[in-house]
Computed example of a mutant assay.
Amino acid sequence: MTEFGRFLRTETVGGSILLAATAIALLAANGPWADAYLTLRDTAVGPHFLHLDLTVGDWAKDGLLALFFFVAGLELKRELVVGELSRLKNALLPVIAAIGGIVVPALVAVGIGWGDPRMAQAWAIPVATDIAFALGVLALTASGLPSSARVFLLSLAVVDDLGAILLIAILFTGSFDLVAAGAAVALLALYWFLQHKRVRTPWVHVPVAVATWVAVHSCGVHATVAGVALALLTRVRTDPGEEESPCLRLEHRLQPWSAGLAVPVFAFFAAGIPVSGDALGRLFTDRLAVAIIAGLVIGKLVGIVGAALLAVRFKFAALPSDLGKRDLVAVAMLGGVGFTVSLLIADLSLDGPDMELAKGAVLVASVLASLLAAVLLMRRNKARSAG
């Protein structure tokens, strides 16, 4: 592994690159290069066969994010099989918290936007948590917190985003191709068989993975589902004499590409929204925007903390011994960093000015949640150091 790979593997650097890509996108969309930026984003590339004549922005959204979800899925499966989530009660805590973090923000958004026809699909925008950005803020501001805080946030964010991807598959699947779906299932079964038979060569696995992505995309389901499904079928336990399992090996090799390329490029094309005085004013007066901001900043915190504490109270789950309730609140605030998947849902659910408004609301909410979480996490760091 190169030093550059190690550099990109840290959450702090990944979050910084993501933030830089977002800033560049906003400058590009609002500066003298706006026309060139939009032309690049909307340029179609690829063959018409199997509906692969996508715009550059769609390739980032459908293709590169599949890599991001594959890497996130690998880390989650490793934690579930051999990590801190291998005990049922430990695993249930972030799962239950994530469910609360999906349901409550949606209810908050619907409550505020009730009667607005745009909320028919936009209610799903505040249900997601950005894994890379949230972990970046945590790594930057919470070095004194135990590792269980990171595992909780990672698990929460992955389950959260799996729920969001499920909603995407349900809400935004216009047509469903049974033949392509059958091919996707067959290819996933082949991938599992190759894992079971200990076939290690990338010359087999890569074509199968790419073909699975194409099949999932062609059947009408959002293509990022392919990344999650492949990750959950990857072998985690090592064989005798094996230095690394396929799960850990792929995670090490692909995480720098996910953090250094996939997520930043997606952010570059997704976050480039026109910002004017009128647009900024609408962010705090338009019901759609207010619903999204409140759902992410307030709904996420209430949903995650409330569901987690209820699960502990009724003994469905256990809070890690080294993670206090105040630590939980500080980490839960990071759930409001919607960003990647929230921008994706905004892109899929709305069009034109409403889509740009929703994306602006996601950006504002994510920045606000990050700042509030940073303050809370630094206070917890200070309290732990003093104790």
Rank of each mutant, 00 (worst) to 15 (best):
L80T: 06
A369H: 08
F4C: 07
A294L: 10
L92C: 11
I24F: 15
D286F: 00
A169K: 08
P105Y: 08
L319Y: 04
S321E: 02
A317G: 14
M1G: 15
L372I: 11
E244C: 01
T129C: 07
T238V: 14
F316N: 03
S245Q: 06
A28E: 02
H48L: 13
S276G: 12
L76P: 06
V110C: 12
A291I: 00
W257E: 04
S147R: 15
D62I: 09
H51A: 12
L167T: 08
Q121R: 15
T12I: 09
L135M: 11
L93F: 05
A209H: 12
V236C: 10
V305F: 06
S86N: 10
T234A: 07
R326T: 14
H48R: 14
L178K: 04
V206D: 04
H205C: 02
K359C: 14
V210L: 15
L248G: 05
N30T: 08
V108S: 04
A259F: 04
D42I: 00
V337W: 01
L138E: 09
V108P: 02
A28Q: 08
R282F: 11
H51L: 11
D351A: 13
L80D: 03
S218V: 08
A36L: 04
A139G: 11
L138M: 10
E356F: 13
V214R: 14
I99S: 07
F172D: 02
L187R: 01
V362F: 02
D116G: 03
L254D: 08
S143Q: 09
S385D: 05
G295V: 10
K325W: 07
F314N: 08
L93P: 01
V81W: 03
L323E: 03
G324S: 14
F284T: 15
V341W: 01
A361T: 01
K77Y: 08
A106Y: 05
S342W: 01
H217I: 14
L368K: 01
A279S: 15
G277C: 09
R313F: 14
R253F: 05
V362P: 02
V275Y: 12
D278P: 06
K77W: 11
N90H: 12
D347N: 14
D327Y: 11
G115Y: 09
L27P: 02
I17Q: 03
A215P: 03
R380I: 00
I131E: 00
K197A: 13
V375R: 15
G306E: 07
A134F: 00
L88A: 15
W213G: 01
L167N: 05
V375F: 14
A142E: 12
T43C: 13
L166A: 13
V206R: 14
V137L: 09
A36V: 09
L348V: 12
L254K: 05
D160W: 03
I273D: 00
L153E: 00
L107Y: 07
M333G: 12
E3G: 14
P126S: 02
T201A: 10
L76C: 06
L301T: 06
D327V: 05
P353M: 04
G241Q: 03
G31I: 11
A106N: 10
A91P: 05
F4E: 06
I304A: 09
Y37A: 11
L261W: 05
V199I: 11
L348N: 07
W114P: 07
G57L: 10
V71Y: 05
V104W: 01
L138K: 05
